[in-house]
Design a protein around this nucleic acid. Structure first.
Lengths: 172, 172
DNA sequence: TGACAGCATTAACCTATGTTAAAAATGACG
DNA sequence: CGTCATTTTTAACATAGGTTAATGCTGTCA
């Protein structure tokens, strides 16, 4: 894990309070973040003010707006701490150029991107083929600990429904 | 584009008739495919027999079940030709080991995975935040040529609705 | 301990989409 | 040109989920 140790040495440690945003939709964000401790949510805010949650990020995970970082465009989503968090921040382009100099870093990068793809594929599959209540069951089975930590509001926004609908689903 | 030329030299060319499947959900599939000409759909079939389309693949694109190829598990979706297609087939693990020996191949690989991630992210965003009719508008604006070639049935399955619902949406 | 804020539930009503089935349109082919 | 298969539209009804608003629950803190 050369990459991990590089990040540990060259990254900047950030302490983020609960409720604080790491980066905000519409802004450039050239960094990626390694989550040491805590829990965050990545979410979209539509023009009409509706929030939908893209993903929850737990300790050990790497998060960043690949789009924003790679293409130098504003991020399409925000990242916010649901608990007090400790993150290590590192420049995406720095990682990318690092990967140009070391095969093993490249390989780690590829592994990270592959596992990211798989995660997104599962999510896409669920959104496309399952009903809200099936998605809820899935979440509960896959990560019951996470579900305990979240408010019903955030779970609903993740499932793509309203908290009212989620409450109904639970009582069946 | 070393990767492209490697594939051109070492890949196997396949001619796939309209309606024929390149690989099938539930089977192992260790290859990825470069689309030279034609149009395909990647789709899921649920136990209840419902089909939903994950993506359409046009010429120039690379497609394969990363999950199946990388983790040696059965593919979660099928790939079927909507038109007569010419594909170049290559082993995924061969590409991966190739990338271990060449930085520039690694870099191309990373670029491909990044652009794949971005595509999936857009799709996830649409499924999560837009209504069926907004998704339809989007598709029409983004790729009107593609829409012309598809049946209403396939468009609907891609949007995650029934052809009946799509017909209704159109007449508004 | 009492007051308040934030979260969860319930209810009533509305809208989008699903389901089924029939009718209409389109397109391929003898 | 007419026939048949396929695709699309329409209609009628069913259901999931959205919206709003009222009610109830829980935890915090002065």
């Amino acid at each position: 894990m050369e990459l991990q140790s590089y990040i540990a040495q060259n990254g900047t440690t950030l302490n983020i309070e609960k409720g604080q945003q790491v980066f905000t939709q519409g802004e450039l964000c050239e960094h990626v973040y390694l989550v040491k401790t805590g829990l965050l949510k990545a979410f979209y805010l539509t023009e009409s003010g509706k929030e939908t949650i893209k993903s929850f990020i737990q300790s050990g995970a790497i998060i960043g707006s690949l789009n924003a970082a790679h293409c130098q465009v504003p991020s399409t989503f925000s990242l916010e701490a649901l608990e007090q968090c400790r993150l290590v921040q590192i420049s995406f382009s720095e990682l990318l150029s690092l990967s140009k100099e070391s095969i093993s870093i490249s390989q780690e990068f590829i592994q990270i991107l592959l596992s990211l793809s798989l995660k997104k594929e599962r999510r896409e599959f669920e959104l496309l083929t399952l009903s809200a209540s099936q998605r809820f069951d899935n979440l509960r089975n896959t990560d019951p600990e996470l579900v305990k930590k979240l408010t019903q509001n955030d779970i609903a926004k993740y499932l793509g429904i309203t908290p009212v609908a989620l409450s109904r689903i639970k009582h069946q």
